[in-house]
Write a protein that binds this DNA or RNA. Structure first.
Lengths: 353, 353
DNA sequence: CGACCGGAGTACAACGTTGTAGTATCGAGT
DNA sequence: ACTCGATACTACAACGTTGTACTCCGGTCG
């Protein structure tokens, strides 16, 4: 169907290689030959066959991005930024989702379905530290997240402990002493939840505030519904609190919603801070103070590290890098620190529907 | 680096084709030969080279999904469902974003970067009816959205007019007569905005309510910030209204937020309904009544149509199909019709972080 | 004036896979 | 004893591209 170099060569009356040379802008082609070939290319609407090129060159020009779920805002926004950065490097992004299942994650790592890609950016939620050696694959891989440390691959992660500590300290700075945590995971020594709870405890300890286990609400997942449910339990338990630290924004928005249904005023009765700084937090009622964990920087760094690995020639590979990105707290109304006007702070929002 | 059929064949002492036959489970291989080859495959960790397969077969097993922006919830959720459906067909999804720019959309259609895919699901926002002929590409293409009609490609779209009419009728049914619309586009005869405004006007006309242009708020984009800004203008204009129909949920959530800041009670003073039924609408305060335009069904249908096209052999292709999916109104608190409990109506939410 | 050089273009092989045609072997049927 | 047919396997070509090695030609230099 589609035209090939062979067709163009035939029409232009030159060899197939000369056409290839024109297409790739090689020197040593006379201007008149070049024009003749160009005319044939235009006439046939020739487009190089990407698959054949890949086979020849060993590069596909695509990278894979493996995520739990795109409908979670954090990951959607991350994917958006990965795609944007990849495009700067002339790469296209193939997305696979795992639903946070350990089995699916492991399967994807060895899946021939992804073999079209030159490398993978991998964000696991189901796998844990014990699975570290499964990451030693024979293609370029960049790991995201806080499930696995110290494995022999490039790893981009956020300062979970420090950021959580800073968030908690902000609440303490507001005079709050009874700070609830929403989203802890039972019996898990690994992952974002454990690290953020650690930061929370560090802040309490530093401020001389005793840690009260009754203030910790556990969830399995980090969706809005889970935040709502565990806030309901917390309220029903009758424990007193004057602030909430939600371990991600989705959870926190769900929790904040229940708080308000139950008649608590935010931030007057309860100050609330989240984690992730997803876009909707900016437009919640009240707008949600949140930790921006450096998402944009994570996306950029991950693509850059991957590109570097892909570019590595046969020689001995560079040592695996562990990159920590900087975080930032974005103060808004839910801690009584943001401006009330929202329409004016509309920021740059690139697209409509 | 990676093992090839050739390596396996050498190790097993058979021909390369026999290995291929084992890999592809062809008959006419003796069990003992099969085992011998299988051992060699395992020993070398052989994985078929997807690129070479593609070249040989003319299929890559990947489809492209072209969207304005993944950080818009509607598209993120759509992408999620496209990926899930694609997987059922053994396909992997490559995502390209256009930022809703007409130039980028047109560029993507002829981009060799996407040539790795077997076909495209294309959701334009910048292109218009005049660009219809640009869709006549020489690869399988399924069009989404309401920007272009009647072009010779498969097209999946929603019942914009009917759904908007039903939404408006719901508000009328609640006794509201002064219904504002947020998100209209100036001077645009095409696209979701125009169609939904049409449905709104149809409903008014059918109910004998005069159409008041002062109740129509215009925006360029459909982000939360735009909804917030135009609601602010609407309020400042002093016009009286007792209901709001937002042309998508993001807009509507922004508008609802401003309404509440301004002291209006929702739904008592102003009933609000949105369009898209994105996940966060379920957790807004109050939860937002919305039109589910059939997103899941759009994703499934689009993939299925594309798969059918890809499977078409050389013969004359099937006529282009125009598919309209069904919508549904999901009543929630913002129209005083939903239940107040939210934690219990948590629905099925597949993943955490 | 022959050797040499660079430009312009070509032929061929190779990337890793699979379809097609072919060979060799064996048992069964006439 | 011979064909026939099935089984088990192999050799080769081809998918469309590009790197390497080659030829051919006109011009320049010693």
């Amino acid at each position: 169907m589609a035209a090939t170099l062979h067709d163009v060569a035939h029409l232009a009356g030159v060899s197939i290689k000369t056409v290839s040379n024109v297409v790739n802008d090689y020197p040593h082609v006379r201007p008149e030959t070049r024009h003749k070939v160009q005319r044939a290319i235009d006439e046939l609407g020739y487009q190089p066959n990407a698959t054949a090129r890949s086979l020849r060159s060993g590069r596909s020009g695509a990278i894979g991005l493996v995520l739990p779920e795109l409908s979670l805002s954090y990951f959607a926004e991350l994917a958006d930024e990965v795609i944007a950065e990849a495009e700067k490097h002339g790469l296209v992004v193939l997305i696979e989702k795992t639903g946070a299942s350990r089995e699916r994650e492991i399967a994807v790592l060895s899946s021939p379905r992804m073999r079209l890609t030159d490398g993978l950016i991998f964000s696991p939620l189901g796998m844990g530290q014990d699975d570290a050696e499964l990451l030693a694959v024979d293609y370029p891989l960049v790991l995201l997240g806080e499930r696995i440390f110290g494995s022999p691959v490039d790893h981009v992660t956020m300062r979970n402990v420090e950021a959580a500590r800073a968030a908690t300290e902000m609440l303490i700075g507001l005079g709050r002493r009874r700070i609830a945590v929403v989203g802890a995971h039972v019996d898990e020594g690994v992952g974002s939840a454990a690290l953020r709870v650690q930061g929370y405890q560090d802040a309490l300890a530093a401020a001389g505030i005793p840690f009260d286990p009754a203030l910790v609400a556990y969830t399995t997942l980090w969706h809005r519904a889970n935040g709502a449910a565990s806030m309901r339990e917390l309220i029903d338990s009758g424990v007193h609190f004057d602030a909430v630290f939600g371990l991600n924004d989705a959870l926190t928005l769900g929790a904040m919603r229940v708080l308000q249904e139950a008649g608590f005023r935010v931030p007057d009765d309860v100050a609330v801070i989240g984690f992730d700084d997803i876009e909707e937090s900016r437009y919640a009622v009240p707008s949600l103070t949140s930790v921006d964990p450096g998402r944009a920087s994570i996306a950029r760094t991950a693509v850059q590290l991957l590109v570097r690995r892909i570019g590595e020639q046969g020689g001995r590979p560079a040592d695996p890098q562990e990159v920590l990105v900087d975080f930032e707290i974005v103060p808004r109304e839910s801690t009584g620190t943001g401006s009330l006007a929202v329409a004016s702070s509309s920021a740059a929002t690139p697209a409509a529907r």
